[in-house]
């Protein structure tokens, strides 16, 4: 009875004199790895224009469909982004996002990046949807590395069905139904 107790307490007392490894969280923070994937930001070019061109690739790469984008045509005199279009709406739903980073990988413009900002708790569900204003960085912010192409491999695809093929199939079907006769066009 007393033996194991002493044994246990020895261990306890041994640790009393060891260096503490508890992270004193709010005051002290652990350094995150360089590719830590927390809150997204939308970056800007050096000239202050937005990088995002509303290509919607991030939205399509996102496995949870947390991103919602509406594109709009740039005013040619006073463009918001480089290129012809920009994102009028760029919403990110943290309630869905699982911080997988696929969106960042998909972004061809290096507009989207992830930071180490993980203190994201909010009091209402509405606040979970972040809008473009919340995510866009100030002009002049140094760029965050996006690791574009980090995992990229050579694409292999299957030949898709193109529109003329569809039309062709439909037309053959029609000719079959219609009986023998030369093509009518």
């Amino acid at each position: 009875m007393i033996g194991p107790l002493i044994k246990g307490l020895t261990i306890t007392f041994k640790y009393i004199f060891k260096k503490k490894f508890t992270v004193q969280y709010p005051e002290e923070r652990r350094e995150l790895p360089p590719r830590a994937k927390w809150l997204h930001i939308l970056q800007r070019h050096e000239d202050g224009k937005e990088r995002c061109v509303a290509c919607m690739l991030c939205a399509s790469a996102c496995p949870t469909e947390a991103i919602y984008i509406v594109g709009e045509e740039n005013d040619l005199e006073n463009p918001i982004s480089h290129g012809e279009r920009y994102a009028k709406v760029w919403d990110l739903d943290l309630g869905r996002c699982m911080f997988c980073g696929y969106c960042v990988e998909a972004c061809p413009e290096e507009a989207l990046a992830m930071t180490d900002e993980y203190e994201l708790a909010v009091p209402t569900r509405k606040d979970l949807v972040l809008h473009k204003e919340d995510l866009l960085v100030e002009p002049g912010t140094p760029p965050v590395k996006t690791w574009l192409g980090f995992y990229r491999k050579e694409p292999i695809g299957a030949m898709p069905v193109t529109r003329p093929m569809e039309v062709h199939v439909e037309y053959e079907e029609y000719l079959k139904r219609r009986g023998p006769r030369e093509a009518h066009e």
Binding site: Y118, E119, V122, L128
Partner: peptide, 26 residues
Amino acid sequence: DNLIPVDVYVPGCPPRPESLIYGIMK
């Protein structure tokens, strides 16, 4: 929150322990 009232939402999948602590501080 479809079932019970929620006071704080902690985003993450999963959230870091710090995120949870931050949530509790909130």
